[in-house]
């Protein structure tokens, strides 16, 4: 198998790439690029969990990698692309509140403080790189927030949220492995949320009647169409 030291280096490289992807998301405005960046980011996380598996030999990591691959690299980008197509909007008109440069600077500031906190409290623990890794993960969460509040469109906000979610996933990969059931439930919840938000995003741009008939697609799945 892979050499653990090499794996660790690989992990560091992957981490840097993940953060880079988030930074790219912050700067980009067109939807297709955003979606593919998100898919790429998720894929990097899949790779990361495989890399971690190489060190820990915990089969759970592989399963997580598999379901992440399925949901975040395939299903969610698929839904997003579909919605974007129906919304007929190609790009965010402008950034609100903060320019991309400012946003990235803000992320750096956030990283500084997060690192300051976690290097303090995690210093006594054995894993040497842990505080850096953990800080990067939480910084990813904050970058997701920045994405949300610098964009007006609901659908780009969703990408921000998804970035945050990836940050949390990253965090949990390094800090503690939760049970599989919970991971699955969380992903289900995430997908439901994306679907609902996508529906609403659509609803904002269309008439309320159309929105309600879309909404009742859920109803159609569940039962019968009301007359």
């Amino acid at each position: 198998m892979i050499d653990p030291v090499f794996a660790l280096d690989l992990i560091k490289i992957l981490l840097v790439l993940i953060v880079l992807s988030a930074a790219l998301i912050i700067t980009r405005r067109d939807f297709i690029a955003l979606t593919s960046l998100y898919a790429a980011q998720s894929f990097l996380i899949v790779l990361l969990s495989v890399g971690l598996f190489a060190i820990d030999r915990n089969p759970l990591l592989l399963i997580i990698a598999a379901i992440t691959l399925l949901s975040k690299v395939v299903i969610i980008p698929f839904i997003l692309t579909k919605v974007q197509r129906r919304l007929k909007m190609k790009r965010e008109i402008e950034f609100s509140h903060l320019s991309p440069i400012g946003a990235i600077l803000l992320a750096v500031v956030a990283f500084f403080f997060i690192y300051a906190l976690f290097s303090g409290i995690l210093s006594g623990l054995d894993k040497g790189v842990l505080s850096t890794v953990v800080s990067l993960a939480i910084c990813l969460v904050f970058m997701g927030l920045i994405i949300i509040f610098t964009r007006k469109q609901t659908i780009t906000n969703v990408i921000g949220y998804l970035t945050m979610e990836n940050g949390v996933l990253l965090f949990s990969l390094f800090v503690a492995e939760l049970s599989l059931l919970i991971e699955v439930l969380i992903l289900l919840d995430l997908i439901m949320l994306i679907v609902l938000v996508a529906l609403m995003a659509f609803g904002i741009d269309s008439s309320i009647e159309e929105f309600h008939s879309q909404l009742n697609v859920l109803d159609r799945w569940l039962g019968r169409e009301q007359r």
Binding site: S96, G120, L145
Partner: peptide, 25 residues
């Protein structure tokens, strides 16, 4: 204000909490 600023409040508050926590620990 709009949603964006509301989220910005969360950002600022969370960051402030982290800073304060840093000084408490």
């Amino acid at each position: 204000v709009d949603l964006d600023l509301y989220v910005a409040y969360i950002f600022v508050s969370a960051l402030l909490l982290i800073i304060v926590a840093r000084f408490l620990i």
